[in-house]
């Protein structure tokens, strides 16, 4: 789980090895999805899925992922925090 952020960011910058690594990690997923179609169509589907994967990676905004303290803050008991009308 840990290396994903780095891999995604590098892939977005055009780092080929990171892209390959991502596809490698997702290969079981992709192969599994291939079972949805008949044998003779799997090669085509595989291409589609690879393209889909790379597009998704390209579009993923890693900066939008919140950090730990964000979660802590959001689940904190509602103290005086934003309690306006006392």
């Amino acid at each position: 789980m840990k290396e994903w952020r780095r891999l995604i960011e590098q892939a977005q910058e055009g780092h080929e090895a990171s892209r390959e690594k991502i596809l490698e990690k997702l290969e079981p997923k992709i192969n599994k999805s291939l079972r949805q179609t008949t044998y003779q169509n799997r090669e085509d589907l595989k291409q589609e899925l690879i393209i889909k994967t790379l597009t998704a990676i390209q579009e993923f905004d890693t900066r939008s992922v919140p950090g730990f303290w964000h979660f802590v803050q959001e689940t904190a008991p509602p103290k005086a925090a934003r309690q306006a009308g006392k």
Partner: peptide, 29 residues
Amino acid sequence: DNAFRDYYTGVKIVHYLSQTLHWKAVQFD
């Protein structure tokens, strides 16, 4: 904070792709 962000990023993308790839395959077929 960073370790969590790394972890969450992985979870998000894996989850998203699992769903998306599966669905894409179903549609394709």
